[in-house]
Amino acid sequence: MNMFAINYSVRGSSRRSEEERAVGYWRDWLIDVEGGDAVLVVEDTEDRVTLNQLLMFVTGADRVPPLGFPGEPTINFLHTVTVFPEANTCAMILKLPKHNTFESFSDSMISGIIQSPCFGYA
């Protein structure tokens, strides 16, 4: 949780309240990922996300380099009608989508990361 800097909108704006809800979901979701509880079941198939997969999705690296990253991974927010998270691995930016429920947020995070399994392989 402390690895990422968070770029919020102006305090008091409607976007800010949506972003704070997304960060709350993000923090709860990270706890689920760490505990192995971030699971999406679709047609009797269970998909799980690990912290290594999340790190790969955001940074392109499957572990933190010994000397750390050259910059700080950042969280931005998607204020468009986008269901899945997006990432820019060069800039180490994770863009979180807006969702009204934790379950919807969790499902979209798992799906978005699982659907990018070949990224990082040459």
Rank of each mutant, 00 (worst) to 15 (best):
M1F: 10
N2Q: 15
N2P: 00
N2V: 12
M3C: 06
A5W: 05
A5V: 08
N7T: 13
V10S: 12
R11A: 15
R11Q: 15
S13R: 09
S14N: 09
R15L: 14
R15F: 11
R16M: 00
R16W: 13
S17K: 15
E18P: 03
E18L: 15
E19L: 04
E19R: 00
R21I: 12
A22F: 03
V23I: 15
V23W: 00
Y25D: 07
W26E: 00
W26D: 02
W29S: 05
L30M: 15
L30H: 04
I31P: 03
I31L: 11
V33P: 00
E34R: 14
E34I: 10
E34A: 13
E34G: 14
E34S: 14
D37V: 02
D37M: 13
D37R: 15
V39R: 01
L40D: 12
L40I: 05
L40F: 01
V42I: 15
V42Q: 14
V42K: 12
E43F: 04
D47T: 14
D47W: 07
R48G: 03
R48W: 03
V49Q: 04
T50C: 10
T50A: 11
L51W: 02
L51N: 06
Q53H: 07
L55A: 08
L55Y: 07
L55W: 02
L55N: 13
M56K: 12
M56R: 14
V58S: 02
V58K: 02
T59F: 04
G60V: 01
D62F: 09
D62R: 12
V64G: 05
P65Y: 08
P66W: 03
L67A: 10
G68N: 09
F69Y: 15
F69E: 11
F69L: 11
F69Q: 12
P70N: 06
P70G: 00
P70I: 05
G71Y: 02
E72N: 11
P73M: 03
T74K: 11
N76K: 10
N76F: 09
F77E: 03
F77L: 09
L78T: 09
L78I: 13
L78G: 09
V81E: 13
V81P: 05
T82G: 14
V83I: 10
A87H: 01
A87T: 07
A87G: 06
A87L: 00
C90D: 09
M92S: 11
M92C: 04
L94W: 06
L94M: 05
K95F: 05
L96E: 00
L96P: 05
H99P: 05
H99V: 06
N100A: 13
T101L: 05
T101R: 03
T101E: 07
E103H: 10
S104F: 02
S104N: 11
F105G: 01
F105K: 05
S106P: 00
D107C: 10
D107P: 00
S108K: 07
S108P: 01
M109V: 06
M109D: 10
M109A: 04
S111H: 10
G112E: 08
G112K: 03
I113D: 07
I114Y: 06
I114D: 02
S116R: 01
P117H: 08
P117W: 00
P117A: 01
C118G: 05
C118P: 00
G120Q: 10
G120V: 08
Y121E: 13
A122G: 13
A122T: 11
